[in-house]
């Protein structure tokens, strides 16, 4: 019996690391949900391709705590995002704003698609033109071919 209890204890041990997050969850689930949603929009500065919500870096935890506290203080999402941008620049946003410096970033994929489409269209058209050109025979060619065919038939007969 004691062994089973020990085993269960060991299995539950990893849960301890979640306890702190869960603690916040239990205190105010609605606030925690908002904090999570907002943190998922913010990039962790240390572990660059994770969100603040996902990261376990100390700075990410501090910033998430900031988000919690500011939400609790009644600040809006926009105000909190502004707070982060003032300190860490646009880099902290997972969705960068449309600006002169980011216009290529936003229009790049569309431009590439458009360029590819134009290239495809042009090459298709030249290919069609080429295959038409080979099948088009002049009037003289056709009459020459007819004559040849006729003479062949006459020869057979």
């Amino acid at each position: 019996m004691r062994r089973v209890a020990g085993l269960i204890f060991c299995l539950l041990l990893p849960m301890a690391s979640l306890a702190k997050e869960a603690q916040f969850m239990a205190l105010d689930p609605e606030l925690e949900e908002r904090a999570n949603a907002l943190s998922s929009e913010l990039r962790c500065l240390v572990c660059q391709n994770q969100t603040i919500a996902d990261s376990n870096a100390p700075l990410a935890k501090d910033l998430k705590q900031q988000v919690r506290e500011q939400l609790k203080a009644g600040r809006t999402n926009d105000e909190i995002v502004d707070y982060m941008v003032q300190r860490y620049g646009d880099f902290v946003l997972y969705r960068p704003p449309v600006k002169a410096t980011t216009i290529l970033l936003w229009t790049g994929p569309a431009l590439l698609l458009l360029g590819g489409g134009i290239l495809l269209f042009v090459s298709m058209r030249s290919r069609i033109a080429r295959s038409n050109a080979t099948s088009e025979l002049s009037v003289e060619d056709i009459s020459r071919a007819e004559r040849l065919l006729q003479s062949e038939q006459e020869g057979k007969a």
């Binding site: 500065l45 240390v46 100390p58 700075l59 501090d62 910033l63 900031q66 300190r87 860490y88 620049g89």
Partner: peptide, 13 residues
């Protein structure tokens, strides 16, 4: 101590 001023200065490393 709690890194709050660090955040105000945008410290990340």
């Amino acid at each position: 101590f709690d890194g709050r001023v660090g955040i105000d200065y945008g410290v990340y490393g």
